[in-house]
Amino acid sequence: MSTDLTSEGAVVAAARKVLATEAQALQLLSDHLPADFEAAVRLILSARGRVIVSGIGKSGHIGNKIAATFASTGTPSFFVHASEASHGDLGMITEADIVLLISNSGETQELGDVLAHSKRFSIPLIAISSRLDSTLMKAADCKLLLPPAPEACPMGLAPTTSTTLTLALGDALAVALMEEREFKAEHFRTFHPGGKLGAQLSTVTQLMHGKDALPLVDINTPMDEVLIEMTSKGFGTAGVLQDGRLVGIVSDGDLRRNMAKLMQSTAGEVATMNPVTVPPDMLAAEALALMNTRKITTLFVVAEGAPIGILHLHDLLRAGVA
């Protein structure tokens, strides 16, 4: 199939124009953050219930994503379709909740029943719109005004820039809320237990082998007994203890380096002392990075100097961390 270079150039130019238009709009939003932004964050933080997000059409799709981002980052939230709300789903919205309504024009008729419901039961209302004088914005307790920016659509009709701005504003709210709640990686994993992200947010203690699997010998153990321990536990290494504390490890590399006098030596004479270890609460992804940096495949997990587990590279691979 022949390629029209002129047409290809026009396609690329069109794409760049869209991206430049939306990038400029995002910068405009950053420079003119809505005056009520912090008030909206404080309002959400004070909520006894959830953040109920609603919209219609493209605004509805964006609202769905905002609600999902809230919910996964520590702010209880869900999306209510505006049309379904008019047919019974208004019952999902309680007086303990906060309503976030999205409408670029601020005059979306389908939001009328949700708006009326929030006013009837004195439910706090946050609005995202590009028109300050719209019905929606006049009714809102917190007004998140989008800056005047052209749609990237050449006809200026299809929601493009406006939906990008709304999505970005939702992300800004979610991240601000995360920081105010001091939401950390271990909390994030609670809402993301599956897939690669969940694996990367696992902690060492969730993936390690426990005490029963540990290959351990005393510092004075003869090397013939050390070899038996290394072979029986199957990790290719043994931890060396002194007074219950891990003071060294014997690895395959240590065996090769001491081959000439190996069977006349003790564990302490062969071991690499002061080994690299990890705490049980370290993220698995951090443990993997440490393995890669130190070019090792096994890490002992230590608490207060004593070994409590062992983590192998294969454990990380099986869990999907790598």
Rank of each mutant, 00 (worst) to 15 (best):
M1T: 12
T3I: 15
D4L: 10
T6Q: 11
T6L: 08
E8A: 14
E8S: 14
G9C: 07
V11P: 03
V11R: 13
V12M: 10
A14C: 13
A15G: 15
K17Q: 12
Q24F: 01
A25T: 06
A25M: 07
L28H: 15
D31L: 13
D31Y: 06
H32C: 09
L33A: 15
A35M: 04
F37I: 06
R42K: 13
L45Y: 09
A47Y: 03
S54N: 04
I56Q: 09
I56S: 10
G60Y: 01
G63T: 08
K65L: 11
A67W: 04
A67L: 07
A68W: 01
T69A: 10
A71Y: 05
A71M: 04
T73V: 12
T75A: 01
T75Q: 01
P76E: 04
S77W: 05
F79H: 00
F79A: 00
V80T: 11
H81S: 12
A82D: 09
S86F: 09
D89E: 09
I93Y: 01
T108I: 04
G112M: 03
D113Q: 13
A116G: 03
H117Y: 06
S118L: 07
S118N: 06
F121N: 11
F121R: 10
F121I: 06
F121Q: 03
I123N: 00
P124E: 06
L125F: 06
L125E: 04
L125R: 09
A127N: 06
S129I: 00
S130D: 02
R131C: 04
D133I: 04
S134V: 07
S134E: 02
T135L: 12
K138G: 02
P147G: 02
P148L: 00
E151R: 07
C153W: 01
A158K: 13
P159A: 03
T164Y: 00
T164S: 08
L165P: 14
D171Y: 05
L173W: 00
V175I: 15
L177Y: 03
M178A: 15
R181N: 02
R181C: 04
F183W: 05
E186Q: 15
E186G: 01
F188P: 12
T190Q: 15
T190I: 14
F191L: 12
P193V: 00
L197V: 02
S202F: 03
H209R: 15
H209L: 03
K211Q: 13
L214K: 01
L214G: 04
D218M: 05
D218V: 00
I219Q: 12
P222G: 13
E225A: 09
E225D: 12
E229H: 05
T231N: 14
K233S: 09
G236F: 11
T237I: 12
T237Y: 00
T237L: 07
A238Q: 05
A238N: 04
D243G: 08
D243V: 11
D243Y: 02
R245T: 07
V247Q: 10
G248P: 03
V250S: 08
V250M: 10
S251I: 03
D252M: 08
D252K: 11
M263W: 14
Q264C: 05
T266S: 15
M273K: 13
T277E: 10
V278F: 00
V278H: 02
P280V: 08
E286C: 05
E286G: 08
A287K: 05
A287P: 00
N292A: 12
T293Y: 03
T293V: 10
R294D: 12
K295F: 01
T297P: 03
T297C: 02
L299F: 12
F300R: 14
A306I: 02
I310E: 01
V321E: 02
A322D: 08
